[in-house]
Every structure is written in C-alpha cells, then in structure tokens.
C-alpha cells in the first residue's frame, strides 16, 4: 500500500518524539553513572554529561568499603528475602482458603479483610501501636506489618477462581487428600500469579525507606534506600551551608567535608542497579499484575 506524504511526516515526528522520551528518561541516570565513574574533585566542577571526564573506580571502592553501606546492603537483602517469603505464604494461604468450597462466610471475611486496605487511622495511631508491639527498632517491622496486602490477595484469589473445578475433583477421585491437592495440584498451577506477587513484594521491600524513617532510629537497621536518603539530604545541607558561606563572605564558616557527589552517585547506582538489571526481563509479570488487578471481582 502506498504511504501518503502526511503519514510519513506523522511517522517521523512520532519516532522523534519517542527518541526524545528515551533521552529524557535515560539521561539523568546515565549522567549519574558517568559522575560515579568520575574523580570526586573533578566532578565538583560540573559539566559532566554521559561520559566520565577522569575515569576512576575509586568511588565504588569507597562505597563498597564503607561499613555503613555493607550493613545496609545486608539489611536490604535480608529484608527482601524474608518479607517476600512471609508475605507470599500469608497472602497465598488466605486466597486459597477463600476459594475453597464449603468455607463459610467467605464474603464476610473478604469484606473484613478489605477494611484496613481503605480505612486507616493515620500515621500516629499506627506509630503508637507499633511501639506497644515492640516493633520500634526491630527488624520485624520490615516484615510483619506489610505481610498481608489485600490487593495481592485479590489477585491470587481471582486467579484461583479461574482454575476449573474439575482439576480438583479428578485429583480427589484419584485419592489425593486436601494437603496433596494444595501442594501438588493447585500450587504448581498458580506459579505465574505467585511469581507476579513475589516480584511486586520484593520490589516494594527493596524500594521502601519510609518505614525506617518512621519507626527505626538504630543505625544497624538502616536499609540501603534509607542510607541514600540520608546522603541526599546531607549533600543538600552541605549546599545550603556553601550558599550561606558565600553570602556572608567575611565570616568563614567551616564546612564539614561533605560526601562527594561522585560517591553519592555511586551509592545511587549500586542501590538501583539490581532493579534496573532485572525489570526488563520481568516486566511481563508486572503487567500481568496490573491486568489481573484491573479485572475485579
């Protein structure tokens, strides 16, 4: 078919626009990547685009050697593993139970579980509650409160409801008991939806830093994201002090040596790289989660 002139112009404009979107999406990240591979003192001059000016890996060496960083990495990894495992066990068992025949009050239980998903008393009552539960400055605060997510439960439940009832019936005829039906029949079949939920929970656990902001003050329990938040805020304070120092030139203010931009960039890269590496291959699972979630009840 002949492509008309206006269509050609439209195509070119569209492709250019898409390239522009790619550039503005990737540029800030590539810029940080370049800064992280650049010498710290040299980065202060600015003007680095997407290639380092004076290549060095010393920033990464500094990051990977720091005890704070290693501790936070340990906490983050531990947290992702435990939070994901426990959350999936809790959510899956709940969804499984709510799809069994003969379980009474299914609708009532679902409604009851839905309440906290939409109504909560706010930050402070939760804060007080956690304090009484001794969750403050406790590693469990990363795992227990977020273990049950109503939305994830609904996703698994709607998947299980779609499975034909005849599968279970034929297993029963073959002599499988309830435990065998769950672990050997239904669970292998629901692996796609479990994978979806595992990924959501893991990414959220890796990315979360507000839990630490609210409930944790002990340094040993800081995860990576929180450490990075401190770095960003710290460099901002340093900038403010520099501005003030130039304002009142006479009074020379002693500025404590801030973490260099390059080390900060290296931290940011190390913190985000697991997700950047992984998400392109897993996006179909994430998209599946959105689709399942949008088809409700």
């Amino acid at each position: 078919m002949k492509i008309s002139r206006s269509e050609k112009i439209f195509n070119i404009c569209n492709i250019l626009l898409m390239l522009f979107i790619c550039v503005i999406t990737l540029y800030p990240y590539l810029n940080q990547l370049a800064v992280s591979f650049n010498e710290g003192m040299d980065s202060m001059r600015g003007g680095i685009t997407i290639f380092p000016r004076r290549f060095t890996v010393s920033n990464y060496a500094a990051v990977l050697k720091s005890a704070d960083f290693l501790g936070a990495l340990f906490i983050s990894v531990l947290r992702v593993i435990f939070a994901t495992f426990i959350s999936v066990v809790v959510v899956y068992s709940c969804a499984y139970g709510l799809t069994r025949k003969g379980v009474p009050y299914k609708r009532g239980i679902t409604l009851y579980l839905m309440i906290p998903a939409y109504i909560n008393a706010g930050v402070i009552p939760v804060y007080i509650l956690y304090r009484y539960l001794h969750l403050m400055n406790n590693f469990l605060v990363y795992i227990l409160p977020g273990a049950f997510v109503f939305y994830n439960m609904i996703i698994i439940r709607s998947f299980l409801q779609e499975l034909p009832a005849s599968i279970e019936e034929s297993a029963q005829i073959d002599g499988a008991n309830d435990i065998q039906i769950m672990f050997r029949i239904i669970m292998p079949l629901s692996m796609p939806v479990i994978a979806t939920v595992v990924l959501w929970v893991a990414v959220n656990a890796w990315n979360d830093w507000t839990t630490t902001l609210m409930y944790v003050t002990e340094r040993e329990l800081y995860p990576l994201q929180y450490l990075m938040m401190r770095l960003i805020k710290e460099s901002e304070t340093a900038q403010q002090m520099a501005v003030q120092a130039t304002m009142n030139k006479g009074a020379a203010i002693q500025i404590s040596k801030p973490t260099s931009e390059s080390v900060k960039a290296a931290t940011l890269i190390v913190t985000t790289i697991p997700i950047i590496m992984v998400y392109p291959f897993l996006q179909k699972y994430f998209i599946k989660g959105v689709m399942l979630g949008s088809v409700k009840e």
Binding site: M18, I21, C22, T25, L26, Y27, P28, Y29, N31, Q32, V35, M44, R45, G46, G47, T49, V203, W206, N207, D208, W209, Q225, M228, M229, L231, I232, S235, E236, Q239, E261, K264, A265, L268, T271, T272, I275, I276, Y279, P280, Q283
Partner: peptide, 30 residues
C-alpha cells in the same frame, strides 16, 4: 525498546528519583 525504557523510572524508589532530580537541578548540574 521504547516502552521498556519508559517503564524504567516506575521501578525506581522515590528517593532514587529525588536523588536524580537533585543532581540534575544542582547548581553545577545539567
């Protein structure tokens, strides 16, 4: 490819996004 790239920022934490914005908007930034 374009779609995959456009999804990227969604998977970063807010604090990483804020870090990127901070250095992009810094005095010596882009």
């Amino acid at each position: 490819v374009v779609q995959t790239i456009s999804y990227m920022p969604y998977f970063l934490s807010w604090i990483s996004v804020i870090g990127l914005f901070y250095s992009f908007l810094a005095i010596e930034g882009t």
